[in-house]
């Protein structure tokens, strides 16, 4: 039996924070554990096989947390798992009542808005790249060689798709901002 499992683009398969948390929880219940999140975990994440555990995970985007951030969560019994870009991850083992880090709807919505903001940064970068390549094709078509043009068209299509996807992600989180 394999004791490692790698998942690609996990953050793009479960784009709503609450869904990402539930997915991690299901994995842990099946005995697949992740003990540390890294900058690029949204692209590649590796789970290790272990005992099935009942964990509650928390996805909390904080671009520049204050220095009491970690201590506050730890005091409440959360275990820090690191950060994936600006999203910090926490987990807590539980038996009966599922613990919540965001105990009122206001803070759940605020968490989801912070997520949308984080996505919007990448969205804007890709949008600028779209405009840049489109601008080259429109304004300087003759100064580009044929291969250059082909490459730019491919890049333009690629970044356009990413921009549209990220836009859709933001809308989806917005629609589900209450959970």
């Amino acid at each position: 039996m394999k004791d490692k499992r790698t998942v690609l683009f996990s953050a793009f398969r479960h784009v709503i924070p609450a869904d990402y948390e539930s997915w991690l929880e299901r994995m842990a219940a099946e005995g697949w554990h992740i003990n540390h999140f890294r900058q690029w975990s949204s692209m590649v994440v590796t789970f290790k096989r272990g005992e099935p555990k009942k964990y509650r995970f928390v996805y909390d985007p904080q671009v520049s947390p204050r220095k009491d951030y970690i201590a506050t969560y730890e005091q409440f019994g959360w275990e820090y798992l690191g950060r994936m870009a600006s999203a910090h991850f926490w987990r807590m083992e539980y038996n009966h009542e599922r613990p919540e880090a965001f105990s009122d709807s206001e803070s759940v919505v605020a968490r989801n808005k912070r997520t949308i903001f984080a996505v919007s940064v990448s969205f804007l970068i890709f949008l600028l790249l779209d405009l840049f390549f489109a601008g080259m094709l429109i304004f300087f078509p003759h100064s580009l060689s044929k291969t250059d043009r082909t490459q730019i068209v491919i890049a333009e299509v690629f970044f356009c798709i990413l921009t549209i996807l990220l836009g859709a992600v933001m809308l989806l989180i917005r629609k589900n901002e209450k959970r």
Partner: peptide
């Protein structure tokens, strides 16, 4: 009835 969560407390205090 009200059990404040870590994230809620942290962001409210901020």
């Amino acid at each position: 009835r009200i059990v404040l969560g870590a994230g809620t407390v942290y962001s409210s205090l901020g």
